[in-house]
Design a protein around this nucleic acid. Structure first.
Length: 614
RNA sequence: GCUCACAUAGCUCAGGCGGUAGAGCGCUUCCUUGGUAAGGAAGAGGUCAUCGGUUCAAAUCCGAUUGUGAGCACCA
């Protein structure tokens, strides 16, 4: 198993860091020129450039970018020197007050309190002064004038807290040369071509209809094939790992979720209840309330509880691909990555404390196997812990400090024993326990949790789950929640971007497209298609009376992995000419040999096509 | 939820300083029967997101709503 670590922006290139940091100051200088009376927030370097936050006197939009860039270039050209000065803290506060910089002032006071500082660092270039630790370039002449580009304007809360005022953030790309900028922008644009929202539409995978609802994707025939293949994969992996499949309804009584503790912890993320109302003498009364399930665990817990359990049955592994519904905030919903209705590769493992580690390990191995088959490599692990410092912790996490310490220790120990790299996410835990999240980068450069394994020390007890131990006494089981293949929505989004829409044969909605050289070979083409379909290969004949070129192009645009070209030669020899997606060289082989080869390619879920020699 | 931008044919987009619209692809039909990324011709297809306001006149200007995108916050 290999898990790569991926951390925050840390430039190993000191000069790049200085340039970006200095450009942030130059941007602020230009914006203050254009919008006098604006004040400053933070303006750090980031992984591909920098940003700066402003409380603007007048709004700015991207239509102002050319003007701002012009002002910035003028400043760069003028060769301003950067001077550092350290002011005693009282002088520093006085200066910030004089400058009219309330955000900087607030931060300055906090810095001094927290780190017990008695002086603060400022940088001056030209007429512009900013409280800042540096480092910076010596002079703006060091900064190439053509290697940065303003990218976007967006809102951002001061100090990242939605209770605070929203500032205006301007993002920019910045590099050390024009060429580096150009190649970065080009790579960025190329990556946008892989965006699952774009390809999902182009390849007929899913659609979202406003009459159905936001965040509620409709899976088209091509997308449904991919889902079915993933479910088949999960079924096989889980069968071999000793899981049992169960099926449960999409709704349950609201009261169940009070018992589990989801309500009130999780209320904001749930669709409002469906209420059955009864007429009484005094008016209306809610007789029963049902909710759409946001998670499957309560339903599975009830299956565990459906009969008396012995320690001999543990670990009991219950698996289900099931829909859950979460009322994500409108601004969070987008494409397939954040949706309000999703189908999850869920399972719950009930086990004893002694079994936790080995079960976690089994789950991690199942993940690694699934990722290997899917060819996914660019992920890293995050140990998601609670945050004991969080003032809102009582609303966010089950209140049982000892259980948190113990369960977090078990998982961290396991990760260390497995010798895998991981980062720690403080405050990223589930409300009922710590978890290991598997993070994947999207084409838009964000990391998202795709898969997750979670340890639950709280909910089984709340529902009164128990098993009889070898000592004849009742014990509360631990529960491991896991979803290696994530939700169909999220994993398919990643797979589309990972493969750029060109799926390996086993996942591809159309696996073989038969292209005849002219209509007179359609009979042979149809014979091939029906023989392939008889072995459950998803084959189609290109029926259009177009030229071969046109049909090849159409199939290529649709990223179909295998094309079979047939004409008089092939019909006479009972062969086919195979052209693989993205490969120009082709191969003519007996049709029967192709049948065996594609069967093996599919059965092995191979990423490449290998011809079987007879 | 918040900030900003955007919404024109099935798709990708142009146009429009106010006088009710265009291209390419796709689709349909016809000709072509062609050996590897677009053969040719004709045709159908749009209350310019929705609602309201200004105006003699709104797709164009203004407002609201809905949706989409980029961020922020959120994210089991």
């Amino acid at each position: 198993m290999s898990f790569e670590h991926q951390g925050e922006f840390q430039s190993d290139d000191e000069q790049l860091y200085r340039v970006r940091h200095s450009l942030a100051h130059v941007l602020a200088q230009a914006v203050l020129q254009l919008r006098p009376g604006s004040t400053l927030g933070f303006g750090p370097p980031i992984k591909d450039g920098f940003y700066y936050d402003f409380a603007l006197s007048e709004p700015i939009t991207d239509a102002d970018f050319p003007e701002i860039e012009r002002l910035m270039k003028k400043i760069l050209k003028s060769g301003q020197r950067f001077y550092q000065e350290n002011l005693p803290k009282s002088d520093a506060f006085a200066r910030l007050a004089e400058m009219g910089e309330p955000y900087k002032q607030e931060y300055a006071e906090e810095l001094c309190d927290k780190h017990d500082l008695d002086s603060l660092s400022f940088y001056r270039n030209g007429s512009f002064v900013d409280m800042c630790e540096g480092p910076h370039v010596d002079t703006t002449k060091e900064i190439p004038r053509d290697s940065f580009k303003l990218r976007s304007v967006a809102g951002a809360y001061w100090r990242g807290d939605s209770d605070n005022q929203m500032l205006t953030r301007i993002y920019a790309w910045a590099f050390l040369s024009k060429e580096e900028l150009a190649s970065y922008v080009q790579a960025y644009e190329l990556a946008q071509e892989r965006d699952h929202k774009k390809l999902g539409k182009q390849l007929g995978i899913y659609t979202i209809d406003n009459d159905i609802g936001r965040g509620l994707p409709l899976w088209l025939p091509n997308g449904t094939i991919i889902r079915d293949e993933l479910e088949k994969l999960a079924f096989e992996l889980e069968f071999q790992a000793g899981y049992q499949r169960v099926s449960t309804p999409h709704i349950a009584k609201q009261d169940l979720f009070f018992q589990t503790g989801h309500l009130p912890y999780y209320a904001e993320d749930m669709y409002p209840p469906m209420e059955l109302v009864e007429q009484t003498e005094h008016g209306e009364k809610v007789k029963e309330a049902y909710v759409l399930k946001p998670m499957n665990c309560p339903h599975h817990h009830k299956i565990f509880d459906a009969e008396p359990r012995s320690y001999r049955e543990l670990p009991l592994r219950l698996a289900e691909y099931s829909h859950v519904y979460r009322f994500e905030e409108s601004g969070a919903v987008g494409g397939l990555v954040r949706v309000r209705g999703m189908c999850m590769n869920d399972a719950h493992i009930y086990c004893t404390e002694e079994q936790i580690k080995s079960e976690f390990r089994n789950v991690m191995e199942l993940y690694a196997e699934a990722y290997r088959i899917l060819g996914l490599e660019s992920y890293y692990l995050r140990l998601s812990k609670s945050d004991p410092e969080d003032p809102k912790r009582k609303q966010k996490y089950v209140d049982n400090p000892n259980a948190w310490i113990k369960s977090e220790a078990i998982i961290e120990e396991l990760l260390n024993e497995m010798e895998v790299d991981f980062v720690i996410g403080v405050g990223e835990a589930a409300f009922y326990g710590p978890k290991i999240d598997v993070q994947f980068p999207t084409v838009t450069g964000r990391d998202e949790s795709v898969s997750t394994v979670q340890l639950d020390f709280a909910v089984p007890a709340r529902l009164g789950l128990s098993y009889v131990g070898s000592d004849g006494l009742d014990h509360v089981p631990y529960c491991i929640h896991r979803a290696p293949l994530s939700t169909h929505e999220r994993i398919v989004a990643y797979l589309i971007e990972h493969y750029g829409g060109a799926f390996p044969t086993w996942l591809s909605p159309v696996q073989v497209k038969v292209i005849t050289v002219s209509d007179q070979f359609h009979d042979y083409g149809r014979k091939i298609v029906s023989a392939l379909r008889a072995q459950f290969v998803r084959a189609e004949l290109a029926e259009e009376s177009d030229t071969v070129s046109k049909k090849v192009r159409a199939a290529t645009v649709n990223k179909i992995p295998n094309l079979l070209i047939v004409g008089s030669q092939e019909e006479q020899d009972q062969t086919v000419t195979l052209r693989r997606y993205g490969i120009r060289e082709q191969l003519t082989l007996p049709f029967e040999q192709f049948q065996d080869s594609i069967q093996q390619t599919i059965d092995q879920r191979a990423s490449e096509f290998r011809v079987i020699e007879k």
